[in-house]
Amino acid sequence: MLADAFAAERLRLAKARGLLFWGFLFVPLMSLAFGLIGTVITVATRRAPGDPGLTFAANDLAKAASEAMTQTDLIPVQLFFMLAAAGLVADDYRWETWRLVTPRNTRANLLVAKLMTFGVGAAGSILLLAVFSMVSALIDGLATGDGFTSNFSFATDLVRMGGSFATSWLELIAMASLAMLLVVLTRNAIPAVISAIGLWAVQLLAIDRIAKGLTGPPGVFDYAFLPAFSADVLRTALLAGAPPESQPAAWPLAFLALALWAAGLAALAVWAFQRQDLTRE
């Protein structure tokens, strides 16, 4: 039955071109566009190689992909994903179509299917970010003459790329669960999106304060209180050159905290939806 609902949601999303584009395709395309624009500007303005004081590094494709996948921690990027998550649920309230679907499948399945569909879309979007960043780095390397590296280290690069993907995806799932919960409670997309983004932005401010106040490894309370902090710790663990004050000590705990936030918020959304009277959706 969950499989039925999931199949239906995927078909719905495939036909909702606006949601599909703005929610999942716009960010990777913009990332590619900005990369290409950067290359054009670099080529147009850079002084010739060999000038004293200037060194140019080859583009590391694997590193570019890993870093691109962490762009989901940017608030403007998160906004588009949250519009998608909220839209998947809010459309049934806006168009009063819950009366058509709730007699056909359980409410839990219907909402979980929407989250799963978001998960598929988000995964695809993050992978596109990685692919486009590699394309952009490749073009940059060729256009600027800096070249690019393609020495792929399984131990380092695959773990880093896989970890970046998993961290970003899990963080987006947690945010989407929050957005869906807020849509169920408010029956409206916009307050849900604004609130979800707002709550995550507040965490980013708090992260900075907590990191500066730490004298040792982050504690359980730090992870549990701020899911965005957990994601930040995981990213730092995966990417080289992190500031000393963000050195992670317990990334498995951070991963678990993030996963629990995602599951907990999703469970809360399902619980609220199951108890809701659908008179005027």
Partner: peptide, 12 residues
Amino acid sequence: RDTLKVLALESG
């Protein structure tokens, strides 16, 4: 047609 396809999928 797509509306009925989606609803048929929901219903299994």
